Amino acid sequence: METLNLEQAANFLKLHPEELRCRAKSGRVPAAKVGKRWVFIESDLADYVRSLYAPPRQALRVTSGKENILCHSKNAVTRGTSTLSHPPASALDALLALPTKPKRRNCTTS
């Protein structure tokens, strides 16, 4: 079991030493502060890096053709339809043609 100091661990993780110190202090990276120095165990850092890997994607399942496969697109609502109701053009024209009040004139005299 090999131990690393801050600079060696930062080099191992390809991080700036100050960034690694902040992550170790917050507990995001496994480390221990022995006296005034941070100590990292190399195998713990390797496990930490492995924990950051993306989860493996599930491969497509190949079927024998005997299974009843439900195709979701056939059960979906027809594309292009909308549940919004738009007012007819004449109602829209009526709304746009609402009368407006005339602007008030300035009543001050000079």
Rank of each mutant, 00 (worst) to 15 (best):
S73E: 07
T108C: 12
E42I: 00
A76F: 03
K36Y: 04
H86D: 04
R50I: 14
K33D: 02
V34W: 02
P102L: 06
S43Y: 00
S85K: 10
V29P: 15
L95P: 00
N75V: 03
S82I: 08
T100E: 06
R105H: 11
Q58F: 08
S73W: 08
S51T: 14
G35F: 01
L20G: 04
K33E: 09
R79P: 07
R50S: 13
A91P: 00
P56V: 05
A32H: 11
T100K: 10
D44C: 07
L92S: 06
E67Q: 06
E19M: 04
H72I: 14
R105N: 11
L84C: 07
E7Q: 13
L95N: 06
S64Y: 02
H16E: 14
K33V: 05
D93N: 14
G80E: 02
L13K: 01
G65D: 05
G80Q: 05
R104C: 03
L84M: 10
E67P: 02
R37D: 12
S90R: 09
A54S: 14
R50V: 14
V77L: 07
W38H: 06
W38K: 10
T109Y: 08
E18F: 13
L84W: 05
K103Y: 02
K74W: 09
S82M: 07
A24W: 02
A24V: 10
I69M: 12
L60P: 03
A32I: 14
V77D: 00
D44W: 00
S51M: 13
R21K: 15
H16I: 01
A97L: 12
R21Q: 13
N75W: 03
K103E: 12
A31F: 00
R57S: 08
A10H: 01
A97G: 12
N75E: 09
V29S: 14
S82C: 13
P102C: 02
T3D: 05
F12S: 02
A76R: 10
P88M: 04
C71H: 11
V39E: 15
A10Y: 01
Q58R: 15
K25F: 08
N11T: 05
L95C: 10
T109A: 12
K66M: 10
G65Q: 03
H86L: 15
C22G: 10
L6F: 04
G27D: 12
G27K: 13
I41P: 00
S110F: 06
V49L: 15
T108V: 12
S43P: 01
L92E: 06
Q58M: 08
T100I: 09
R61E: 13
S110Q: 07
D44K: 02
F12V: 00
D44V: 00
R50E: 11
A24Y: 02
S90V: 13
H86W: 12
L13V: 00
H86I: 12
T109E: 04
A10M: 01
N5E: 09
M1I: 06
E18P: 00
N68A: 09
M1V: 11
N5R: 11
K14H: 06
F40D: 15
A9Q: 13
D93R: 14
H16K: 15
L6S: 13
M1K: 13
L60N: 02
L84S: 09
S110Y: 07
R61H: 12
P55T: 05
S110N: 04
N106S: 07
